[in-house]
Amino acid sequence: MIKVGIIGGSGYTAGELLRLLVHHPMVDIDFVFSTTNAGSSIAKQHPDLVGEIDLNFTNTINPDVHVVFLCLGHGRSRSFLENNTFSGITKVIDLGNDFRLAKDASFLGNDFTYGLPELHREKIKQADHIANPGCFATAIQLALLPLASQGKLNKAVHINATTGSTGAGVVPGSTTHFSWRDNNFSSYKVFTHQHLDEIEQSIKQKQQNFESPLFFIPNRGNFSKGIYATLYTQFDGTEEEALQLYRSFYKEAKFTIVSDYEINLKQVVNTNKCILHVTKKNGMLLITSVIDNLIKGASGQAIHNMNLMFGLEEKTGLELKASAF
């Protein structure tokens, strides 16, 4: 059994991580660390876990767990690792953005591997430290990597993607308050979103000469979970050639699927799937990509990485079905 510790256990990503790990057949949840909730019931903070888990939050760590998941929020993992020491057997999976870029990947003598399984499966298997990708970055990279793999990203890419309110985290803010978000729609960080750096980094690993602009418009949706992304760029080939390229690129992927039919968000919510749809219109290749931002875009992908790191079958604990109604 894999002994697991979770750091920062009160947020949405930690709650989803717990929901998945509590039924993972090869996992024993050793501790869930939270300074603000120490001593209180995990099920009180995460009511969907009532009857599923009887642990309390703690403010102490077990340094000898086999793997620790960092769910601390962006920019806080570095300071935690500087102030807390784990044993040589402990693998680290960071769900924040501290180590995603190559310039930040080396820390305290350890090298973090970027944890997108569809791009780095073999590296992840050998890694001890993983930087889990961002949610927008996951949906967008999976939509573009097949084109980059054949050097076909040579024109501007236009991206419009909408995320649910859970993408903003558990702490309420002016743009996540129900009265503001309900029956509302807005854009933010237009052309400047922080996930663009990791997207470009991954694309250049497949297409070194990539210099085309990525025009990314992120939107806030009035729903809780999921990301719906549409991307388009000029493409000289036929639609059939594009479909063949995408199917070939993802033929070994366990969770990324190329659909013959138009897709919608409900097909992926509460699953670890990314579903893609590809079509060509007026000389433009249109790619639609849908994921659950908290699962494929965060906690599910982290467990997928754990499975690879420990030599488990990739789908272990992640065979989840969506509800279409």
Rank of each mutant, 00 (worst) to 15 (best):
M1D: 02
G11S: 11
T13W: 03
E16W: 08
E16R: 13
E16I: 01
L18P: 04
L21M: 10
H24P: 07
D28K: 10
I42C: 02
D48C: 00
V50H: 12
N56G: 00
T58W: 00
I61F: 02
D64W: 00
H66E: 15
L70H: 02
H74M: 02
G75R: 13
N83E: 15
T85Y: 05
G96L: 05
G96K: 03
G96C: 07
N97Q: 05
F99G: 04
F99Y: 12
S106N: 15
F107C: 11
T113C: 14
G115R: 08
H120P: 01
A131G: 07
C135G: 13
F136T: 07
A137W: 06
T138G: 06
Q141Y: 00
L142T: 14
K152R: 13
V157C: 12
G167K: 01
G173T: 10
W180F: 11
R181D: 02
D182R: 13
L196I: 15
E198R: 03
E198V: 09
I199T: 10
S202I: 05
K204V: 01
Q207S: 03
E211Y: 01
P218H: 04
I227M: 07
A229Y: 07
L231Q: 07
L231E: 05
Q234W: 00
A242D: 04
L245K: 09
S248H: 14
K254V: 11
F255D: 10
T256V: 15
Y261Q: 15
Y261I: 00
V269C: 04
N270L: 05
K280V: 06
L286V: 14
I287V: 15
S289E: 07
L294K: 03
S299N: 07
S299T: 02
A302C: 10
I303Q: 05
I303D: 01
F310A: 04
L318S: 02
L320K: 13
S323P: 00
